[in-house]
Write a protein that binds this DNA or RNA. Structure first.
Lengths: 340, 340
DNA sequence: GCGCTTTCAGAAAGCGCTTTCTGATAAGGT
DNA sequence: ACCTTATCAGAAAGCGCTTTCTGAAAGCGC
């Protein structure tokens, strides 16, 4: 079913049919009605590709690239993006890179080919220098051609609009809270240090401890996943050194793994060791003990990032940054340190 | 950057440039190389819309419609779809309906407009009769026009390729297992009964109990969400009747809510009451007690459903059904019933 | 009633690509 | 040497839409 068929059925020109359907220009009422009826009758659906080709400015799709939709963090942020997109009749193309840099580049390229109105990058980037350059090489011409890009907590090399959680301040506040509980020896389970998210949270946590003159006992690195957290926690426990009274995993997802590892070692949380995370993904409230964490408004961050991308570009070329505060939420996974 | 520009730069016709880049027809090696080089130099990215318009058969996008990406069930299935799609260079457009029927129809329509190669519907439909008809009215012409549709555990009215978890058999097996543990009084927390998923699991559970001559004590209905499970569990406990020794929530997501409700009532799981779910979403392993459930291979179901949609349509018009077995996984949330 | 602006429908020119179709050139057969 | 058969590049015709541009009809003041 093409527009031509509709026009013929309604006894008007394709031009008029187009105008009647889109309401771009005034069309006599009776004609408009006739076209509407004809379209209905023929079950006409405009070809979005033809529309996009003819009128390149009116694009209804936005692309979202994240590492893995099945990670609750990305799922929550994506959900916010989708809610906002739905309200504006936008279609979201969601891609998972499965943490492969090459796939990320490929997706940006596909999104460029689709002439997506905006590209949203969710989550930290990779540390690879070549990748950075390649991504920039894709994004730069896209932006120059009128494309919009916005990111959530992205790598430092990207000069684009950003939704930036206050990782450092949040981690510092968490550290202070934990010190307030009485803890003096701490370990941190981190992800890849090249990610700003990781290094900011680590730095913040250190600063928070430093306020009370406390040093960080141990830092163990692991993958940015549940299993990474599990492995890191095991390594922490295996090393033989005196156990810290409190463990901070830089993300909740890692904390979930860490909790499993601690349990397997027969340690009670929080009686033997306290555990805290960061993000407040939905599930951690359900754990027992429920996880102490720094809550980020994930869904609304998703809404923010798409709003940022869609907003009229500011006169100056400067990248805008929306800062999002994290709130320390103390739950049952932290307590006073064991005596003795 | 258009193909014409590339062709000019390479000193060939647009036709040759197109052929060189796509490899559709033999092109002399030196020309092909020249075109490649020119494309590279100009940072050429083909306009996917123009391609789609000119060659409607070659479409690289598939649409996935689910209720909510932030629900772990959908996230897991979607993740499988995406993994498979990535391997075939397909772009996935993922839409969340937020459980609004109208939005689902709208998305199908948008996907049709995009001339998506396939539309995948994940999760149960709505009970609304008008909605059913409307959905069918969208899907039927789409399929007639060569579009592919496949669904995961969908409503009965749809005659399309389906990945069908064996809800009934799985629930029955679970019931038998629970009876084997010694339980004799059961309650079920269900979702909207119009969903086949719900009614199949309920029926299967009943059958499993009936094998031992046991009847189902109570059925409480709630929304298909964590909060729905929570509310249903509270209602179950509030009714004053003697408490069942075992509760089955028809989905893990609901079971998570139920667990919270049981806890709040001061009940210990499994000492005071046993709890089981269905699906085996990733997080339920992490709960304590870890949830007994019927495990479905969610990610691989996602891979199955896209494979089903993309496979050459069978000669006969009959819808294909891939049955997926569930496996009872006994974890710590179930135990022997309390004595006395 | 005449020239003016205003309103609105239709003709036609693309948007950027793919793909026949056409024709030139080279290769092969006798 | 001549004709037939492959190869392969280019011209041109769309794909289905939007949007100028053009022109007819109607509305207005004098």
């Amino acid at each position: 079913m093409t527009l031509d068929a509709v026009a013929r059925e309604a006894g008007v020109s394709p031009a008029t049919a187009s105008r009647a359907l889109n309401g771009t220009t005034r069309v006599r009422d009776d004609l408009r009605e006739r076209v509407r009826a004809a379209a209905e009758r023929l079950d006409y659906i405009p070809n979005a590709h033809a529309q996009a080709l003819a009128n390149s400015t009116n694009n209804r799709t936005v692309g979202v690239i994240c590492h893995d939709v099945s990670d609750p963090y990305f799922a929550a942020v994506s959900s916010g993006v989708m809610r906002a997109a739905a309200e504006q009749d936008l279609l979201v193309m969601l891609a998972s890179t499965f943490r492969e840099p090459a796939r990320e580049i490929a997706y940006v390229s596909m999104l460029r080919a689709q002439r997506a109105r905006a590209i949203l990058l969710i989550g930290s980037g990779f540390q690879d220098r070549a990748w950075e350059r390649a991504l920039d090489a894709e994004l730069e011409p896209y932006v120059r051609g009128g494309g919009r890009v916005a990111v959530v907590s992205r790598h430092r090399s990207l000069r684009v609009d950003t939704v930036q959680p206050e990782n450092r301040a949040g981690a510092a506040a968490l550290a202070r809270t934990l010190v307030g509980l009485g803890h003096r020896t701490f370990a941190v389970l981190t992800g890849p240090p090249a990610l700003t998210t990781v290094s900011d949270r680590l730095t913040g946590f250190r600063e928070g401890l430093a306020d009370s003159g406390i040093g960080l006992d141990r830092v163990v690195e692991g993958a940015f996943t549940r299993d990474g957290g599990y492995a890191a926690a095991r390594r922490l426990l295996a090393c033989g050194r005196p156990r810290p009274t409190c463990v901070f995993a830089v993300t909740d997802v890692m904390a979930v793994g860490a909790l499993a590892a601690l349990r397997e070692e027969g340690l009670r949380v929080p009686e033997d060791v306290s555990l805290a995370g960061f993000d407040d993904i939905p599930l951690v409230r359900e754990l027992s003990p429920a996880l102490t964490t720094v809550a980020l408004p994930l869904t609304s961050m998703g809404e923010d990032v798409i709003a940022l991308a869609l907003r009229e570009p500011s006169a100056g070329r400067r990248a805008r940054v929306v800062r999002v505060a994290g709130e320390v939420v103390v739950r049952a996974s932290t307590g006073t340190p064991p005596v003795g």
